[in-house]
Structure formats: structure tokens, C-alpha cells
Amino acid sequence: MPEPLLSIGSFARAVGLSPTTLRHYDDVDLLAPAHVDGVSGYRFYDVAQVRTARMLAALRDASVPVETMRAVVDADDGAVGALLEELAARRTTSAAAEAAALRRLAGELAVPRRAVATVDGAHLAVALAAVAPLAGADELDAVQVVVGDGLVLLASDRVRLARWSLDATVRATSGGSSVVVTVPGPDVPALAGWARDRAKVTVTADEHGATFADGSHLAPVAADASGAAPDLAAVWEARRPRGLNRTWVAPEDGPSDARHVAVPLGDVEVLLDSALLDGALATVHGPAMLEADTNLEPVLVRSAATPQHGILLMPVVPEGLPPAGGRVLP
């Protein structure tokens, strides 16, 4: 006895397609009903058509166009798998190309990062002179300038990291984040000398670099884009101590003739390179606060007179303990 035919509504529920979609597939000769009532025009479907209809439903969910559906339906059972694999490969390639195009468009339409800040010229000169001696070699032979909520200068030779924060009037920002630029090491003295005689210096920074100006008078040097240099501001935030252990060191406490000096910091004793510590103390001027979380993590040296300025130093690892890398920067 033959299986009873299913009404379009029952068939639609069984295969996951709407009656409207089934009527469309009939109109385009993709899936014709098994029987159409000559009087009412009602469509009826055979149970044997369920497999094909469910395949069409899956293809439709994958946004496969009707002509491609037709090719799948008409293919031999043995060829369907290969056809679907080919379709999936084309989809992957197309999706990657579309995603790349969208990213390019997003980059073209994105608001470029830009920041404008004005600082005291003499203060900028002092800050440049303070952090520049700690600049290292290669990509670190520079002073990083972060223009955002204020103005921050940073420099590092990997063993030390100096930071100086300046009060600044930020007049314009766009692009949603701070702008990081670099002043090449050889250019820092010229910029510091120029800024020293200026009442105010305006720093205009974007993704291509920065200019320094006093009104309409430009500084003889400019800053470059940060390029491949490490983000020193991020390193500072990640590695600076949280003030768990601290002590004051007065200038008369140094310099030391010993190669290393042990500094008691609260619950820990930190072993520091005497030359590096003496250099840091000379830079920050006056009594200095030393802070550290452990005797294996960077020590922060900062001055009471210039709390906006600080230097991170790596301690000397005591004998018997595993090495901690010996660098502020990796």
C-alpha cells in the first residue's frame, strides 16, 4: 500500500522549510510536489521527498543560491560529497577575501589617532635631559613620547626604564587612544636645547610622528612613529612595584665603592648594582624613595622633589636563587 501523501503544511514542518519556500522551489523547478490537486491547486508531497527537501533546507541555511542547489540535487549520490567539499573551499576563499576587504575599508574609514598637548618648554627640556641617558641601542636608542591625557617621556636600555610625566594641556584628541612617537636619541639634545628657551611647546602627534612648536616656530627636530619599538608605557605599568616594601635613601648614603649594595626594603632586602643605583639617585635628585615587591622584581627609584619622575632598576639576583632575566624589558 503506497504511503499517504503529505499536505504542504505537514511536509513543511517535517523538513524545516516554510510553505512559501516550498512553493518557490516548485516555481523554479527545484522541488516539484508529488501531486497537485486539479481543483483546489493544493500541493502534496511524497515521504520519499523528505531527504531531498531536508538537504535543500541545509543548503538554504548555508545561503547557497538556487542554481547551486540544483547542481547538488541533480548530482549522483557519489558526487555530492565532492561537490559540497568544493563549494566549502570556495566559500572559505571568498570569506577570507571579503573579510580582508572589510578590514581594509575599516582602516580607511577609521578616525586617525591624533593628539595635541601643550607643555612648559623648560619642563620638557629637563624631562628630556633626565630620561635620555637611559636610552639603549638599536630600536631603543630613542625617547618615547606618549601624548594622551598628558605627556609622558620614557627611555630604556632594558636593564633600566625611566619615566617622566609632565603636566600638559591637552587640546585635542581623536581616535580613542594615546599616540606614541619616538624622538631618535641623536636628536634629543637639540630638541631639549630648543625647548629650554620656549615658554610653551605644543606637541602635535599622530600615527606618522609628531612636531614640536612654539606658536608658528617649529623645533629643528621631529618625532617618528613608534614603529617596532617596545611599548615602554605598557612595560612600566606591568612591571612597576605596587609599594609593598619601601625605604628612603638620602644622597649621603651613597655612592658606594662596592660593586653591589644591599638595600633593606621593608620585609625584603634587595641587592642592587651600585653604579646603576648611584646613577638613578643622581638623576632623581635629593632623597629618593625605593620601592619593590620582591627581591627579584624591578625596584622603583623616585624622588620626593620630582615624584613625576621614576626609574625602574633590575636587582642583582642573590646566589642560590634562579635567574630572573636581569632585565626590565624582556
Rank of each mutant, 00 (worst) to 15 (best):
L276E: 15
G81Q: 15
V249D: 08
D157L: 06
F212V: 03
A250L: 13
G107C: 00
L166G: 06
L6P: 03
H35D: 12
V270Y: 07
A32F: 05
R160G: 10
H35I: 07
R43Q: 06
A258L: 13
D74M: 11
L265Y: 06
T21W: 06
A288E: 03
E319K: 14
V119G: 00
A258V: 12
L166Q: 04
A162I: 09
L22E: 03
V146K: 09
L17D: 04
L102G: 06
A53E: 07
V36C: 04
Q144N: 04
L300K: 14
E98H: 08
P112E: 01
A142E: 09
A190C: 10
A135H: 04
L87T: 05
P112T: 01
A225R: 05
V39E: 15
L124Y: 08
A132Y: 01
V170K: 09
L276H: 12
A275H: 05
D141A: 15
R91P: 09
A199V: 14
L290I: 05
L290H: 13
V146M: 08
L31P: 00
P287R: 13
A262I: 09
E3K: 11
D267L: 10
D157A: 01
V284I: 13
A205W: 00
L244C: 02
V201N: 10
D278P: 04
A110C: 01
R60K: 13
S303P: 13
V36H: 02
E252L: 12
W164G: 01
V80H: 06
D293W: 07
M69A: 11
V152Y: 02
L281Q: 12
E3G: 01
L134T: 01
S303D: 14
L153Y: 00
R90Q: 15
T306L: 14
A125Q: 05
V284R: 00
R60Q: 14
N295Y: 11
